[in-house]
Amino acid sequence: MPDVTIEIDGKAVSVPEGATILAACRAAGIDTPTLCYLENLTPVNVCRVCVVELEGSRTLVPSCSRQAESGMKVKTDSARVRTSRTMVLEFLASSVDVSLADDLQRQMRRYGAQPGRYGPPAPPPKADQRDASVAGHHDPPSGDAAHTVAQPVKRDNELYVRDYTKCILCYKCVEACGSDAQNTFAIAVAGRGFDARISTEHAVPLPDSACVYCGNCIGVCPTGALMFVTEHDRRAQGTWDPSRQNKGETICPYCGVGCNLEVSTQDGEIVKVMSPLESGVTNGHLCIKGRFGWQFVGKRR
């Protein structure tokens, strides 16, 4: 495939035809933040944290989905780019609990983001209020505090929790549940605007939805909004300790697909099972048995 050459921050970078500006930035070793982008999902380009300045374009462009075209001139660290990236990070951190989103935190430090300048976080609304919000309507704010997406943790099954206070609405879980991996379509984005949220139909609990508990949504969630019950409970009890954890790769003990597993152990017990994205067999996706069916190992003791 022929290469195209573009100019990034004054330097020529060549990438294969069809590659994105993001791929070119990464080829050039430029640290480009991304939140909604993932190698194994279709780009939705909604977070806008990867935007770059493209000569001749009125607005900034999302590097994750814009194809590199010969002769493009791109700036990744102009004042405009920095302002937009900083503000996007601030907007998220001022409205969402990003305490477990390590990469987002790192980028916030890099860009000096100050989410506090929009005011203190507003008190959380009543339970279920976000699920009941009506498109096109909202109560006028006082302005004294910054509105957030805070809401109670949804715990409606024994395998994973949905803590949407931590949801940045990157759409990754919807894609992984849908046509990018599982084709189950148990969840979608519902509502509109700031009240947009990930939801089952009529916000029914997961056991009443089409969910098949593949947990591929957990695998792609960048903020810890979707989490194994085991991890959630250990965190709540203060017994989740990444410094005492080891990770190793192996193969799922169930069917003949041969999914790669990345198993985390702590104190001689399995505490979490994921699948590496770069695994060619299923690109990081699993089924309920592979993701959750490992508990027999510990239960023999």
Partner: peptide, 10 residues
């Protein structure tokens, strides 16, 4: 605020 589709963060 009401009419934003909610897709992009900005």
């Amino acid at each position: 605020r009401d009419e934003s589709c909610g897709q992009c963060v900005p």
